[in-house]
Structures are given as C-alpha cells and as structure tokens.
C-alpha cells in the first residue's frame, strides 16, 4: 500500500527552480500494475524515486505499508527500501566485475544475509528469469535482454512488495523487450505491485492502471489498477 498526499518536490536546475512534483496525490494498492507516462521532465522519474524512497518530498506525506516515511532517518529508509522495494533501471546498472550470481546476491549481501542462504535465493530468482545457466557469467558476456533479466532477478531477490521499473525496455530491441515485459508481468500476476515508468505507449497501455503526468501533476489516472490486464499485443 502506497499513499502519497500533497507531495511536492522542487529541484534547482542551475538558477531556476524546477517543480518536479506538484501536489501529487496517489494511492496504489498491493498487486496493482500501473504505468506512468508523460513527456520528458514531467516528473514521472521523480515520482518513481519518491515511491522508491530514493528521494524525499519537500512537503506532503508518503506512507509505505502504513509507515510515515518522511519522518524516518537515512538508515531506516535504506532498510525499508531493502525490504519493500526492487528497482529496475533503463541502463541495467549491473556491476561489471561481479558475476551474474554475485550481482543478484548484492542486495542480500548489503542486508547481511548468510552466503548459503544468499546463493539459494539468487539461484532461485535466476531460475525464475530463465538465466540459471548464466550464474557464473559476467555482465559483458550477456546480451541486453539477459542483462535486464539479471537486473530483475536482483530486484526481486529480497522478495519486495513493489517493483519499480524506469524505462525497463528503453535500451532493448523488440524481442528482448517483450521477454523482459513478460517476466515483469508474470511477477505482477504472482502478487507483486508493478510500477513502470515509460515513454513507450505500447508498453504503457499494457498496464491495468495508467497515469499520465504533465508538468509535475497527474493529468489523468484510469484508477482501476486491479482490473484484468490489458490485452493489447506488444
């Protein structure tokens, strides 16, 4: 359960302030599948980072699973992020010197989980994204689609409630993009809340709930995120 109330965020770009979020109100229930679309600079990435606790609102409140996050310190926010949120980035952000398995284990390592348990979970999620046979490879030995699937495995290895994907198919060709979207939607079907920020109208339409942002404000919200998934072919 994600509840944002009257959230504002202003960045200083050079001398002039840029209002990335203006009085944003949104409630997202567990298991929803929603897309956030809008032109560049409309605040959709800021919204995603806000939900993922990477950013703090200037004003307004954000409750995650009932916890008022704006009062928490850096340590507590990091712990909350580790427990509840998985991130997927356009540029994958895998660490090149680590193997696939080590990359996937990274969040668990940061959380101080034992190596044995880590290995088990990491192999499990690699299986889930169809890359169990690539555990020992390094990122530079994998294709773009495979990289993004590794990144998804890494995002879900801590069993988060929420998956935040920022342009997950932005760097991929059609076929690999379709694979990645399928993996994400399967995860959503298993109950994870999926929030996708994208420019891609095709991808955006697949979500059950679609939000459109312009100039830091929510312009439209279909608001029925638990309806059956969109049937539009990619």
């Amino acid at each position: 359960m994600i509840e944002l109330q009257d959230v504002n965020k202003t960045y200083l770009v050079g001398e002039s302030p840029l209002r990335a979020l203006r009085d944003v109100n949104i409630t997202i229930d567990a298991g929803e599948y929603l897309s956030v679309m809008g032109p560049s600079g409309s605040g959709k990435s800021t919204l995603l980072n806000m939900v993922g606790l990477l950013d703090r609102p200037d004003s307004g409140s954000y409750r995650l699973e009932g916890t008022a996050t704006e009062e928490l310190g850096e340590e507590a926010r990091a712990r909350l992020r580790a427990d509840y949120v998985g991130f997927i980035f356009q540029a994958f952000h895998l660490i090149n010197r680590l193997t696939t398995l080590e990359n996937v284990e990274l969040p668990m390592m940061l959380a101080g989980i034992s190596p044995k348990k880590r290995r088990q979970s990491a192999l499990g999620v690699l299986e889930q994204v169809g890359l169990a046979d690539r555990a020992g490879h390094r990122p530079n030995q994998l294709s773009g689609g495979q990289l993004q699937r590794v990144a998804i495995a890494r995002a879900i290895v801590m069993k988060p409630r929420i998956l935040l994907a920022d342009e997950p198919t932005g760097n991929l060709d059609q076929a690999s993009g379709a694979e990645v979207v399928e993996v994400l939607e399967n995860l959503n079907r298993e109950g994870i809340t999926l929030l996708v920020v994208t420019h891609d109208a095709q991808l955006g339409k697949r979500a059950r709930r679609r939000i459109r942002m312009v100039d830091g404000q929510i312009e439209s919200d279909t608001g029925d995120g638990n309806a059956p998934a969109g049937s539009t072919a990619l």
Binding site: A82, H93, L110, M158
Partner: peptide, 16 residues
C-alpha cells in the same frame, strides 16, 4: 558514482 548510487538503491545505507 553509478555503483554507489546503485548500492543505495539496492538498500545500502549511507553508513554502509
């Protein structure tokens, strides 16, 4: 920088 940002996004704290 990217790696540090990533570690934070993956639940790493400033202290870590």
């Amino acid at each position: 920088r990217r790696e540090i940002g990533l570690l934070k996004a993956l639940g790493g704290s400033s202290r870590q």
